[in-house]
Design a protein around this nucleic acid. Structure first.
Lengths: 161, 161
DNA sequence: GGCGATCTGTGCAATATGCGCAGCCGTGAT
DNA sequence: ATCACGGCTGCGCATATTGCACAGATCGCC
């Protein structure tokens, strides 16, 4: 990725406005930002087409959904199986929210949620019983100190033109 | 959290529909789901009010934004300072996307992005120079095997009534 | 049975949307 | 200097949606 895929100040202001007021509509956006309606629509389409904005879908909070326990689980995989095969199997477990291959002492870092600590054990057992998973090292997330956010990064990216 | 905060099948279908077609509008939602318009609006309001849906804002992909390097950094903190104070300082660094206090050998697990590996070093240096941060252990995320998703969890939660 | 919560269908005025169009401007290539 | 292109602008139009309100029906609980 290089600067061609980055954003300018208007993109950043648009993203920030939609973050603050997601249901605002294109016309009101254009009023607020001081640009033409077509410009807003074109900018949005471009941000989506380039993958900068992945989705405007609902961001669901697992804790409020009934899954307050969160853990980061680092898996060691059997070399012969491969990351992709294991990931496909893990993706069938709803409580596995995301997974990244990583450097370091483990191979795959997963974010896993559960309703209770006891249930987390069950989920991890399911993970461990997936073919290709050798061991799991678990840390429980106790509190969210910085909630996931990308707006500061958006401003940063727009400021470096 | 108990079952009172959970969702039913209609909530789940609504969330899934909005995930698939975020700009669909309330009226079209009601058509698709086979319920009254007011019902959709009321359900949405409730999902938001209860925190199940945190936001409908744009979900930004750091990699497409120009930050393809991602790392999970576990920090050891000086006991006297406290998590909150450190988190406040880390929140001032745009590249720090989220942070959770965790069990295990570290105190705070952060998700950090950067444009390059070299720049990541710079970000980590900034993190390390924050008062209260003693050391940092970094693993680089090599590939996203399961992209962050909550829809399967939503279906799971709705199915357990 | 009574009550409250929820869902339903309807109506209305105001507003927005998707789409298209012509014109203008800045930029880069020739 | 000229031309082509991309992006932005303002405008128009037919259609659709929205926010809000309302009355009535249904359901679950006490």
């Amino acid at each position: 990725m290089n600067n061609e895929t980055s954003i300018d100040e208007l993109d950043a202001r648009l993203i920030a406005l939609l973050d603050a007021e997601p249901r605002i509509g294109v016309l009101e956006c254009s009023r607020r930002l001081g640009v033409a309606r077509g410009t807003v629509q074109a900018r949005l389409d471009k941000l989506v087409a380039r993958g900068v904005v992945r989705s405007f879908g609902p961001q669901v909070d697992p804790a409020a959904l009934g899954y307050p326990v969160m853990a980061f689980v680092t898996l060691e995989l059997r070399q012969a199986v491969g990351h992709d095969a294991v990931a496909k199997r893990l993706a069938l477990i709803p409580e596995v929210l995301e997974a990244h291959t990583v450097t370091g002492t483990g191979d795959l870092l997963c974010r896993i949620v559960a309703r209770t600590n006891a249930e987390l054990q069950g989920v991890i057992d399911r993970v461990l019983s997936s073919e290709g998973v050798l061991r799991a090292e678990t840390v429980i997330a106790l509190a969210e100190q910085i909630q996931h956010r990308t707006l500061p990064l958006v401003s940063e990216a727009a400021g470096n033109l």
